[in-house]
Design a protein around this nucleic acid. Structure first.
Length: 489
RNA sequence: GCCCCCAUAGCUCAGUUGGAAGAGCACCUGACUCUUAAUCAGGGUGUCCCAGGUUCGAGCCCUGGUGGGGGUACCA
């Protein structure tokens, strides 16, 4: 390695001695590689195009020399294109420089288009300029970069070497811009709320703690934006959304990264039924635009996103997949143990039901399914069903076993909300660290009056996983969480 | 947190029973003016993840650690 880098540094030194700037400021391009390939695809073999002068720039990805001429592929943001440099076209001095170029260097190229004997559209180089000297060798051209650790730590190399990885992130970007377009058209306002919160709220999760020096106090990285977004509903912003990071101080898995991206939206004068419609419409539209179809495949399972999507109550879903009728069961804990679950004694019956669902139902939810009517106990910020105070008007959406969305009709009765947060407080005292905290300002806001309203959260990373057929959340996050690395010189 | 798996050249990998380091690409030197995994001739560039231990001898066996992956627990 040191040897390889030394050689490049020597080349750099020689360039400077020859007054060739290895890191110039700019280069004027007229075309992207892809544009050229598209524009001239009908050329005949051996045909040259008069007046086809182009300039483009990119990274050298391969070189094939032939004495007094040489082929190379350069890659720009749009793709790869072959360039052909000849001694008798560029002259002796430039050709010597060409021979010294390394794979990895950036160059700008001016030339004309032709098609080679073997049928590849190629730029015949009339002049070129070194745009940035590369001092480290890239991975091998054929096998690319496979080492997972290096792919994540040095994502830039992953992006250079693995086009399918780049494709995932292009899709991710497309997905978020489609979401914005969709919501903006429906009159939603994109807003931003605090990442650092004095009281973390809106979810049951352990927060990260940070410290503000000037204020001499700890702050929490948010676990959800929910309580702030609701304050905005109180403030008269009737449709708001935020696409941003949440931070949860919990386990890392193929479906969990400590920081992850969430779309959270609130819509006044609506309930969870309206949001089921909105969710369906949104996800189906994105799939159609990004993949061109509603029939997708995720990890070997064929999934049909054709609407309407199935709806199952939590209770009926458990009955369907486990044959367990939770209404008729006397001792739910006993049943759960019989099914093979190991449970701590402190669990309430409702928590046991939640466990059964996660263990036995979730892995079966391949086709899009709304699970509705969650126990009120698990949903302290949700409004109860009109005819059943023990159930919340809440849904979660599962596709390909991924939990993609969570939504409810928001509890806007300030008296009830206070009671529920008090219950949570009691749970905290009892040792449940991730129970909700009391947030007096949030309650005060509700006391001013919040219109009926429904809120939705969609895990953007998981949605991207689904639409790019990625098995791990790390595949869709550019820089997934890693332990710090010791980097030498 | 617990369990299992992985770590050898810049990259992708091989390395037998414990006998002292290998290939392809990349790189370096040279040849070659339509190649495309260019070709031809020559060159091995290494903290075998780290620290101990066993042994006459360790890439290989043992112990501990580091980093990564997967599972599980916790967790939307």
């Amino acid at each position: 390695m040191e040897e390889l880098i030394k050689v490049r540094h020597e080349k750099l030194k020689r360039l400077r001695e020859e007054k060739i700037e290895p890191y110039p400021h700019r280069y004027k391009i007229t075309h992207k590689a892809r544009e050229i390939l598209e524009k001239y695809k009908k050329l005949k073999i051996g045909e040259k195009v008069k007046g086809s002068k182009v300039s483009l720039a990119g990274r050298i990805m391969s070189k094939r020399g032939h004495g007094k001429s040489g082929f190379a592929h350069i890659m720009d943001g749009s793709g790869k294109i072959q360039v052909y440099t000849k001694f008798d076209v560029v002259g002796e001095k430039k050709y010597d420089l060409y021979k010294k170029l390394d794979i990895g260097d950036f160059i700008g190229v001016e030339g004309r288009i032709f098609k080679t004997k073997t049928g590849e559209i190629t730029v015949l180089v009339e002049d070129f300029t070194l745009l940035a000297k590369s001092l480290r060798p890239l991975p091998e051209k054929w096998h690319g970069l496979k080492d997972v650790e290096m792919r994540f730590r040095q994502r830039y190399i992953d992006l250079i070497m693995n086009p399918e990885v780049k494709e995932v992130f292009l899709k991710r970007s497309r997905i978020t811009s489609l979401i914005r377009e969709f919501l903006d058209k429906k009159g939603f306002l994109e807003i931003e709320t605090p990442m650092m919160q004095p009281i973390p709220g809106g979810a049951a999760a352990t927060p990260f703690i940070t410290h503000h020096k000037a204020l001499h106090r700890d702050l929490y990285l948010r676990i959800a934006p929910e309580l702030y977004l609701k304050r905005l509903i109180v403030g008269g912003m009737e449709r708001v959304y935020e696409i941003n990071r949440n931070f949860r101080n919990e386990g890392i898995s193929t479906k969990h990264n400590p920081e992850f991206t969430m779309l959270e939206l609130y819509q006044a004068y609506s309930d969870y039924e309206d949001l089921m419609e909105l969710t369906t419409e949104l996800i189906a539209k994105i799939a159609k635009e990004v993949l061109g179809t509603l029939k997708i495949e995720y990890q070997g399972e064929k999934i049909d996103l054709k609407t309407p999507w199935k709806r199952l109550t939590l209770k009926s879903a458990i009955k369907k997949y486990t044959k367990l009728d939770i209404d008729k069961v006397k001792d739910i804990k006993k049943e759960a143990k019989k099914m093979g679950l190991s449970l701590e004694e402190v669990l309430t019956d409702t928590q046991v039901i939640d466990h059964i669902f996660k263990e036995f139902v979730e892995p079966k939810l391949i086709q899009p399914t709304f699970i509705i009517d969650y126990p009120r106990e698990l949903s302290p910020l949700a409004k109860a069903k009109k005819n059943n105070p023990n159930l919340a008007e809440r849904f979660e959406l599962f596709i390909g076993t991924l939990e993609l969305a969570n939504a409810y009709s928001e509890l806007n009765d300030p008296i009830l909300q206070r009671e529920r947060l008090k219950e949570q407080l009691a749970l905290r005292w009892a040792g449940s660290e991730d129970a909700h905290m009391m947030d007096e300002d949030f309650l005060r806001a509700l006391e001013y009056g919040m219109p009926p309203c429904a809120g939705l959260g969609i895990g953007i990373d998981r949605l991207v996983m689904l639409l790019t057929d990625s098995p791990s959340i790390r595949d869709v996050i550019l820089f997934p969480h890693m332990r710090p690395e010791k980097v030498g010189k």
